[in-house]
């Protein structure tokens, strides 16, 4: 192959390689600016996944929803869950389907034919299972998250994420622990700990 052709192809490759992360940045910035706001209640994480280091491992409460009538999905396949907001702004999972709903907000998820305790109940996994923080803060935040979620149970722990949703994609805006943004909570706890 001649050198000019190789160089031309390489330039195309470099553009494509750069376009992928750049396209992601544009898409997620757009979601954070124009996406619909939902709160998602979190749940305790698997204790065996305890040490994460750089992020808070998240799990979500109530990740079960009925399948759209007449539909059958392959276990672990890609699915879409339709969303509805309750009075407090928390997301309710309405229905699962292999196709995105024509109206309303929805999230792209992974479908499971059984729920977490092995019952034959359609459930799903949200892919937003990490909240990244600075390495010094992340372990403290994770410990606080675990403490609050366990202490208060699933419903009223005040531990949730605020997410922006658009066209099936979601981006976490903030993690709340004890109804406070996680960084504010850590600052407050740090100040309280000082002599």
């Amino acid at each position: 192959m001649n050198a000019k052709l190789i160089f031309g192809l390489y330039v195309i490759l470099a553009v494509v390689q750069l376009a992928v992360p750049f396209g992601q940045i544009r898409k997620y910035e757009d979601i954070l600016t124009t996406g619909a706001v939902y709160k998602l209640r979190t749940a305790p994480v698997d204790p065996y996944d305890a040490f994460r280091g750089r992020y808070v491992a998240l799990n979500y409460a109530g990740t079960e929803a009925p399948l759209r009538k007449g539909e059958r999905l392959e276990n672990r396949s890609t699915a879409y869950v339709a969303l509805r907001r309750d009075g407090n702004g928390f997301a309710q999972f309405v229905e699962l389907s292999g196709e995105p709903p024509l109206e309303g907000d929805y999230l792209r998820v992974q479908y499971f034919s059984m729920n977490a305790i092995g019952e034959d109940v359609p459930s799903f996994r949200l892919p937003y299972d990490k909240f990244f923080m600075e390495e010094a803060q992340a372990p403290q935040a994770e410990a606080a998250y675990r403490k609050h979620v366990k202490r208060s149970g699933d419903k009223d722990s005040g531990t949730y994420v605020v997410m922006r949703v658009k066209a099936g994609r979601g981006v976490i805006e903030e993690l709340y622990i004890g109804n406070k943004p996680v960084r504010d909570m850590l600052k407050k706890e740090g100040a309280r700990g000082k002599p």
């Binding site: 390689q17 992928v20 992601q24 940045i25 997620y28 892919p127 976490i172």
Partner: peptide
């Protein structure tokens, strides 16, 4: 760098991803 840029963008936007 290709892998790192995709992973780091995902980290910046808290995307667990698949």
């Amino acid at each position: 760098a290709v892998g790192a840029s995709i992973a780091l963008v995902a980290q910046t936007y808290n995307l667990g991803g698949r």
